[in-house]
Design a protein around this nucleic acid. Structure first.
Lengths: 152, 152
DNA sequence: TATTGTTATACTCTATAACTATA
DNA sequence: TATAGTTATAGAGTATAACAATA
């Protein structure tokens, strides 16, 4: 052959060389692609993935504490604060003092928050369909399982 | 049955409920875990993953333009600027006017930049080993291939 | 003493908009 | 007109440090 396959891809305009062998690099690029699709397609939602995750978790676990939300979503206390603050400013959730432990805040969704979450879930279903279209059912399951091995 | 399996896991302290079925959610958590491991373990490097990616790419493609770096790493022009600026401030790379196209900057690593990249590559090898320890060789390959389907 | 929430602060990544220089 | 770089600006996520209230 006059031109080996390697040479054909090496000068490709999108070539990233040895970086392509780094798992962490692909995770970051995939994350950016997913984040971008979510925000671009659902700009009218005006909720980030993280904000939706918090709403979702509070809906699943009413009266959950901030520290608990942070632990489940792998966030710092201060990081959790900023997100809960934003959601509270928009009247999507409210803080109550926990009855069992005065140090804790008990988080609850407002009706508006529940409505926003419902809209978000519809959007996420579309988003997931976009994502899953690349994979067979077995592949999707395997992917989730492997990603979980990383973050668990 | 008195207690279905679902109920057993539902009250787990780390349970995230239906969120666990969302691929995008796992990608984000995995990304955070990888990012955190990288920054915590290699704080003395004082380089972010993104900064290393740019150094790496400039080393692989001397005289590459900023717009080209951005395209390959899927970043905006302005985003690329801020990263190149930081690296230039630290004398890790320099800008030259492109000879072929006066609009473009040709990026080159300095000796310091090459030294920093060499240190970074050693660190990344360790980081990758940490990551890959979870997977068989076939699994790692499959994971990269699936992630590439998302960001390509 | 330890935990939870809070506030202040800072840095990185990301992006949009407007401008300049060059093609 | 289109492209590449630049500058200004802003928002989201992340984190550390210090403090207050509660356990």
């Amino acid at each position: 052959m006059a031109v080996p396959t390697a040479a054909l891809t090496e000068d490709n305009e999108d070539d990233i060389g040895e970086l392509a062998d780094i798992i962490g690099f692909h995770i970051r690029l995939a994350h950016v692609a997913v984040y971008r699709h979510f925000t671009e397609t659902f700009a009218d939602l005006d909720l980030t993935q993280k904000q939706v995750s918090v709403l979702w978790l509070v809906d699943d676990h009413p009266a959950i504490s901030q520290i608990d939300v942070g632990r489940r979503l792998q966030m710092d206390r201060a990081t959790t604060m900023t997100i809960v603050n934003r959601l509270q400013d928009r009247d999507y959730l409210r803080r109550e003092r926990s009855e069992s432990d005065g140090r804790k805040q008990a988080l609850h969704l407002t009706d508006e928050g529940r409505a926003a979450l419902a809209r978000a879930k519809t959007a996420i279903a579309e988003h997931e369909a976009w994502l899953k279209s690349r994979f067979s059912a077995e592949e999707a399951e395997k992917l989730v399982e492997m990603l979980a091995r990383i973050h668990e």
